[in-house]
Each structure stands twice: as structure tokens, then as C-alpha cells.
Design a protein around this nucleic acid. Structure first.
Lengths: 235, 235
DNA sequence: ATACAGAATTCTGAATTCAGAATACGGACG
DNA sequence: CGTCCGTATTCTGAATTCAGAATTCTGTAT
């Protein structure tokens, strides 16, 4: 894929709205009005409508009573997405390890790439920089997807990442110390580079499941709609 | 989710274009012109443009030299998608089996639902009805996704199904006899309903991998662009 | 206080128009 | 024959307008 010379207004609008949803500026259940967003971002309704079409397709916004709303934070849905993501990450880790087992060149290259990410990741931990930690966490997992040799894994997982971004700050605050997370990353990389497919898979599953488990235990973001829906789904 | 009273022109255009791509009417690499499609379907450019935005987002169409083209049939990409799908189907089968193991009511209900699909599937095989076989094959896998209890698996897999639809007719023609495929479905259902998670997972992986293997062996749809890309990716 | 019907309003889907980027083509020149 | 440049054309992105569905609000009756 070649880089687009510059992103369209639709792409910019998509990223802007997604960013505001991810950082909480646009809260769950907020009513989204095309005209209001168009004025806020200084464009016409049309690219906003198209961006919202993509966001709706991704499930990040949904139909409200009148127009669209920001999808509520549904803890069960987040857990479900973590589960799907875990399976995709496990596939990626396993394949990446197999490729390393099959080729010392690939193993060396993969190790180097991975170590670069670990380096900046540990640096972010040392600096206590939450945003950088999140960015490097995302980069580490993206690296694993790419190392798998199957380019379909990453876009499939990214749909879920867009959702999980909304709670990643929370996961980081409530999860084990960031240092521990990055030690887990290091162990995963070591297993991948060593060609230990089953180890890599087990480590990455454990890594993600512990992050998801924190969401289960604390469930801090449930709102009224979510609570109602959970009650409904128990019937 | 409540049913939409009627699909929008965007949704209809999306399905119509996807259908023509799936059945080969719109061949790989075909140049897609918004105005031409608008006239063909009797609408204005705007819903066509939005439908194409979604199709592009799904990877079914891509940027051409001037506007969009139908994405070429890339065998390696198809195999990659089968691989992702296999992992999602395996997760679904495993979870479905676990739910059956945990609850005799769920097991009974799941068995009944699955047997209904098998019944019509075998009937389609007996009648030699290719289209019906495809529809019921899709229905069987959708049933497994739904039986998993994780509603995120199905939409994640469906993105790949949209691609795989383009070669499913080919896979059916070149794969083992349809009767064998539906016997595999029956074995998968039996393992799920019996709560045998590892068996269910192994069976469904084997089922899908044998379908994907047929694509590998025969590779009948490679075109020049695909051949070039494969050569490039070997460097 | 509640229910209902009609009017008003909101907001979006879709059509149409405008502007411009990118490609294709043709002619001139070496 | 190949290259380069200018023009024409294609086609799309985005803005604007129109039409209408759905929701909200208000007045009236009970």
C-alpha cells in the first residue's frame, strides 16, 4: 500500500470523531448531529455523513432515536472483543514464531524490530508517560501482526482495537504495573524470535487475558444503558 | 437489534455491487464509475459513492488509476483470509462446545438448531443445488458463531466471508464431494453438542483447512496482477 | 393528570451542482 | 520512434439544496 498524499476530509473527520470518542470528549450515548459536527470541524455535512457511515459500520456509533449516538461502553462487548483479539494475537504470535523457526534471517530481523519497540516502550514506562505507553503498546501488537506473515490479521484486529482504545487508559491505570506489561512483551518477543510457537501463543494469550480480566473485575465504566442491557441479557 | 423497516439506498447499492462482484458480473480489476453505477441502479451518485466507501473500507474495491476498481482475486490474500476465518471458527466452536458442556439446556437447543441446518444442507446436496449448498454452508457457520455466546465473532468473520464468497463456488466445485462437507458439518455439530471443545475445534480447523488447501493446490484464479504481487512478495 | 391528535421541528437521505485533481491524449520536436 | 508538454477529459470530493421520515411539542378533551 502506498501512502495517500493527503487524507481526505472524510478520513480526517473519521479520525477526529474517533479520537474524541476515544478520549471521552464525546461521551457514550452522546447525540451526534451532522450539522453540529460539520460546524465544529469546519466542513460541510457530506464528509461528516460519510465518516459517520464508516463509524456506524465499525459499531462505534449507532442509531439513536433521532440520528446517531456514540455507542455506549458495553463491558460485555469489550470482553467479547478482547476475546476475539486474543485469538487473533495468538494466531499472529504462533505464525511469527514459526516464521522465525524457519529462517534465521527472519528471526534476526524480527528480534531487532521487536527490541526497538521494547526500548521505547520501557522508556515510556520509566517516564510515566501514559499516552506514549498506549502508543507503544499498540505498536508492539501491530509489530506482532506484521511479523506473522499474514497481512489479514492486523486489519481484522484493528476493528476491535478502535473499540478497546476507549478503555485502554483505564486498563493501564487498573492493570498490573506498566513495567510488568512490558516484561510480558519482552517474553513474547523472546519466544517469537526463538521460534517457540506454543510458548509465544501461551504468553500472548495470558498477556491479553490478564488485561481483559481487569475489566471483568472492576467494570468501572458500566452506565445505565449498559446495566439495563446486562439485566435484559440475563433473562 | 431491531430489524430496519427497509434498507436504505446505500445498503441496497452495497448489496447489489457486492452481489455482482461475488457472481463475477463485475470482474476483478473492472473500473467502477460512480455515474455508470448510478444509472445502472437508477439512483443518484451519492448513495453509490457511500456504498463504494463501505466496499473500499472492506477491501472489496480499491483505488485504481482513475477512481475505483474491483479488487483483484489475490490467492494469497484468500488463503490469508481463510486462515483468519479458521481461527475465528475454531474459537467459536470451542466456546460453543464449552457452553454445551456447562448447560444441558443449551446443548439440547444447540443440537436442535444445528440439526435443522444439517437437514436442509443434506437436502441441498441431494438436489445438487449449488446455490442452496452455499447458502446453507454459510448458515451452518453462522450458527456456530452464534452458538459461541460471543456476538463479536460473527461480524469479525463476516468481513472475510464477503471475500470468500467470490471463490466459494469454485471451492465447492473443486473440493471433496459436498456429501463429505456436510458429514464434516455433522461431526462438528456432534462434538459441539457433546461439549467436546477440543474435538470441535480440531474438526472445524480441519474442515476449513481442507477447503483452503484446495485453493492452494489449484489456484485457478490467479491473474497477472496477482502473479506480479506474489513475485514481489518473494523478494 | 392523562391521552390523543395535529402541528412544528429536527435531522438525515438523497439529488444536484460546483470545483478541481489526476489521467489520457495529441501534437510538436529531437 | 521516443519524449515532452499542453490541453482535454474523466471522475470524484465536497458543498448545497430539496424532500421527507421520525420525533417532539403543544393544545384540547376527558
Amino acid at each position: 500500500m502506498h501512502l495517500a498524499p493527503h487524507p481526505s476530509l472524510v478520513e480526517q473527520a473519521y479520525d477526529a470523531i474517533l479520537g474524541e470518542i476515544a478520549d471521552g470528549t464525546l461521551a457514550p450515548n452522546t447525540h451526534l448531529v451532522q450539522e453540529v459536527l460539520a460546524e465544529r470541524y469546519g466542513v460541510s455535512r457530506q464528509p461528516i455523513q460519510q465518516a459517520l457511515l464508516l463509524l456506524k459500520n465499525d459499531g462505534i456509533v449507532q442509531d439513536g432515536r433521532r440520528g446517531l449516538i456514540v455507542a455506549p461502553l458495553d463491558m460485555q462487548m469489550m470482553r467479547d472483543r478482547y476475546q476475539v483479539r486474543a485469538t487473533l494475537d495468538a494466531l499472529a504470535a504462533r505464525l511469527a514464531a514459526r516464521r522465525c523457526a524457519a529462517s534465521p534471517e527472519i528471526a534476526a530481523h524480527t528480534r531487532r524490530q521487536g527490541e526497538r519497540i521494547l526500548e521505547v516502550g520501557f522508556a515510556a514506562v520509566a517516564a510515566g508517560a501514559i499516552k506514549a505507553m498506549i502508543a507503544h503498546d499498540v505498536a508492539f501488537h501491530a509489530f506482532v501482526y506484521d511479523a506473522s506473515g499474514n497481512p489479514m490479521i492486523r486489519p481484522t484486529a484493528e476493528i476491535h482495537w478502535r473499540f478497546l482504545r476507549r478503555v485502554m487508559g483505564e486498563v493501564l491505570r487498573k492493570s498490573e504495573p506498566p513495567m510488568s506489561i512490558w516484561r510480558q512483551h519482552r517474553a513474547i518477543l523472546a519466544a517469537i524470535a526463538a521460534g517457540a510457537a506454543e510458548d509465544a501463543e501461551a504468553l500472548i494469550l495470558s498477556h491479553i487475558e490478564s488485561a481483559a480480566a481487569r475489566l471483568v473485575a472492576d467494570a468501572p465504566m458500566g452506565d445505565e444503558a449498559d446495566t439495563k442491557r446486562r439485566a435484559q441479557s440475563r433473562r
